[in-house]
Design a protein around this nucleic acid. Sequence first.
RNA 1: GCGGGAGUGGCCGAGUCUGGCCAAAGGCGGCGGACUUAAGAUCCGCUCUCUCAGGAGUUCGUGGGUUCGAAUCCUACCUCCCGCACCA
Length: 894
Amino acid sequence: MQDQDQRGFDHGEIESRWQHEWADAGTFHIPDDADDPTYVLGMFPYTSGELHMGHVRNYTITDAYARYRKMRGEDVLHPIGWDSFGLPAENAAIERDTNPRDWTMQCIETMREQMRAMGFGYDWEREIATCEPEYFQWNQWLFTRLYEEGLVHREASEVNWCPSCETVLADEQVEGDAELCWRCDTPVETRELDQWFWGITEYADELADDIERLGGWPDNVRQMQENWIGRQPGARLEFDVGEARSASEDSSGDEPREYGPVEVFTTRIDTIYGATFFALAPGHPISEELAAENEEVRQFVEEEADPEGDEPKGVKTDLTATNPATGEEIPVFVADFVLSDVGTGALMGVPSHDDRDHAFASDQGVDIVPVVAPSPDDVPDVSEAAYTDDGVLVNSGDYSGTESAAAREELTRDIDSATDHVQYRLRDWGISRQRYWGTPIPVVNCDDCGPVMVPDEQLPVELPEFVQTTGNPLDEATEWKETTCPDCGGEATRETDTMDTFVDSSWYFLRYVSPDDDEAPFDVERANEWMPVDQYVGGIEHAVMHLLYSRFVTKAIADMELLEHREPFENLVTQGMVLADGEKMSKSKGNGVSPLAIVEEYGADTARLFTMQAARPERDFDWSETGVQSAYGFLQRLHETVEAFVESSPDGEADATADYVAREIDATVASAHESYEALTFTEALRETRDLVGLLRQYREHTDPDAETFERGLSVAVRLLAPVAPHVAEELWATLGHEEFVAEASFPEPAGDVSDAERERQLVENTREDVRNIVDVAGIEDPERVTIVVAPAWKHRALDIAVESDAPNVIGEIMGDEDLRSKGDEAASYGQELQNERQSLNRALTPDRELAVLRQAVWLVEREFDAEVSVVPADEADEDVAKKAAPNRPAIRID
RNA sequence: GCGGGAGUGGCCGAGUCUGGCCAAAGGCGGCGGACUUAAGAUCCGCUCUCUCAGGAGUUCGUGGGUUCGAAUCCUACCUCCCGCACCA
């Protein structure tokens, strides 16, 4: 290693030098008048204070891709910014006795430096920070516009409350069965608060429909969004609920009490003839009313009901519901498996065709009547288990014999109260947060006028000075809070809630288009041209929240006629985790590897190269020290190879060996190109490594042809430039180029590469055969290797066999005059071809075979230290030559 | 339960869409060799089994099937990971 270091390069010096050169030259700046640039974007980081390996991976992917596209001659928009509002800054400020702003600004400072040190090619002139008034005023503007569009409302609602963060959480921010806060894993409680909501449900249908069109997104993300939206087509209908006649007679002489129609939602209205009970959520108004006067119900609702429990539990009431299809009165239960916030909080129970209803009915002794069957004469036995598939209706009056799907339509039409209804799991987006470090909601609460929007000309509503307090600091800022009503001029108070930080990130990709615009959130014309983001890269943890909000906001803005695009991200890659010893890297586990330490010791290029070659972007990979060292070693070797070449240029012949190298260069380029296109860097990097290895072998074997060798180096350096840009830049300069490699053109193959695969295969197979023979025959020290290429007539015979669709190919072969003249030999080769008929492959032409093998002679010479010759069949001994076949030369070893 | 993804040689991992030089790329680990006083680095081989000239056999979660031919297509099952879920 010592040795290497002395011969090698000083990454610290090289890296900072080129970073400055790029900055001075404005290499990565994209002018406003650029014509539809390729938009490459990594999800902007939360300003936690330090870059971690996940960031390095994320941003290396986008940087490598952006640099690749730039080398392909495209204009590239590759911006970065800071997701810089949020609770952690408040906590940090309190811990360090400072304020969120200073703390955040310092984090940004640090992280920006670390990004520069990584050599990411951002357009720093487009940098944004969401905590700046210049940015968040547009959150407020957006709030106002959405309000005008009727997409904002305030309502008292039961909300998720994290007692540790002392704030409300959106449904999306509550995780798992245990209902934990996404940020701090504290169990979430519920509270009733006045909350502002954005009407994402207005777009539920479109958000669900358009998922299908997101072809550039991974399936799992699309599916997670679909699940989250949870669209369920069904029907709403009403059941008349009232006191059972018998019950009222017992208690008093009064008329039976009526509760009127109660609405339910069902996806299986075709099973309505089997609805043998009716169930209400404990929180349903009727349940509450019953609980107030009936001890049994009260006891159940307050003490027994356990919505979390596995067993469906319930209590029978004195009420009955009238099944609108059968007219029958069925018992009404208050049951804990009925949830207030699902559907209407009431349901019809069909034990014969729903597993959960079946369990409940069995427990309560309710009738179970099958009304759907696989076929009319195959009515299922539903006493033990429900039959949940669609089928044909039975026991269903006039509808018997109708298929489920058709019955659903007919019943919805025929039952008076029934209407088609689509239910969603998606709820409106509660954006109120009782925290300081966020965008103030631009609303003034007036006793007379109610909530009033702050007029645009008074925006932004900025944050008051930070104070340390247990609650919301905005509540303490009396001076800031007290204001006048924009409508009536009377005394009023400001809204003290701030916005969810997911608001900030729901449109930031539009701000990069015109980050300094102080008239509008973004330049409409330019956004229309530059959007959507061509390639978006980020973590899977944002599969639902951030990506769904962004899609919603984009659509809402489009409907304000400000944008022609209805989807923000064309292609999405969710990158995998960086693991250490198979576990997620994290501070708490103490297994983190600091990017800074790696950059310090090995350099940014090594960190980048290792990260990109370790695994394709979407997969997890294990951090490994040997991997890092191998990346480092490779860069050192490449550096040494270039240096040595420039110091003393070789002057070897442009011989067959040079041709071989030239061909490999082309093959490498072709393969690397594909790999970069697909964002799978691993293959491009492996090919590049192989090429460098080949050049070094070439150099060791003989005095290379300078031109070929130089082209090889130039290709290797450029293929590596997107991933290891500093070393590449340095070597590019060493090779005598004036311009940046970052602005050089991505290499193109010099010749036709369509046969490259076949040629590689031929060489590889032939070498392997030689090894085999040497090994199997136990040849100690081969002196001469003779490789004999098949004669032209065999190639012709093969061609005929490949083309032919005759049952027996021998006839066709012998039909050829030239071939017939070969007599028995041709016939027996024909027989061989016939035997392998189905698996025949085209071969190279005989001339090409000869040439390719001659180019590869040096490899065999090198390996066996023997004299090697490649000859056409007619120059070889007959008994050797006759074994030669296309794709399979004969080999003679002496 | 519903839906999605995946199971490949000691390990990691390509290949599967478009079946055929696929005993299956590449890496790691292991073994042998070159270089070195030595180690490291680098370079060259080997790394399923058998094999006396390039041969043969058994492999890609398991069992069936389609095909001249299956890691690749179909089917059933098993296992793992992820998302959603008393969702009406």
